[in-house]
Amino acid sequence: MGKLTSPYRWGMVIDLDRCTGCGACVVACQAENNVALCDKQQIGEGRGMHWLRIERFWVGTYPDVRVRFLPVLCQHCHDAPCEPVCPVYASYHNPDGLNGQVYNRCVGTRYCGNNCPYAVRVFNFYQHEWPPPLADQLSPDITVRSRGVMEKCSFCIQRIRRAKEEATGEGRLVRDGEVQPACAQTCPAEALVFGNLADPHSRVARLARSPRRFQLLEQLGTHPSVYYLKGGGREHV
């Protein structure tokens, strides 16, 4: 029984009051995870590849107009709608609370993407290419997904595994702040904070107790691992 209980429950807090919408996280994610390059036509078809997007909302009309940014990535739900619909168990839940995707099991039914209320799963409708020598930048830690495979944010699981291996080697648990996904690492405003929600003293757990906390589409009961903190103020805009 002890083997089944992980000391980690990875989660993220996104502070919308800090987020400036700059897009650094989007490029960091592309770079870290070998996410494919898409041309104008593919994006126009709605078949762009991104594991993390920034939603932009206009509210009001000139001159009383304001903009809200909302970074949306896989919410790593604890009751994930994508998991039970996969006929081949490519979409699974790992003991750390991550919502995993096994690429070589995926047969491309796209049921999971269909069932995801956050629209964060992206499907390889094309065989994407990196014209040489652009392919030299591909990370050796991650497979390059071929056509017909569903993919999505993994909270940079390769970084988590590396940190866990290092910690295990030293006979300890992963320390708070030791592992960060590429998006949180690069965020200039430190709007994204990643960590272990199972540790009540971690930065992410403390922030997740903030009264400004909310979750995306909470009413669906998906129990996401990502918490958002409401942007304050902006009452005069």
Partner: peptide, 15 residues
């Protein structure tokens, strides 16, 4: 037994 209950993480080869 346990390695089969924890599926391999998406082809990751930490280097």
């Amino acid at each position: 037994l346990i390695p089969f209950l924890i599926p391999p993480d998406e082809g990751v080869t930490p280097g």
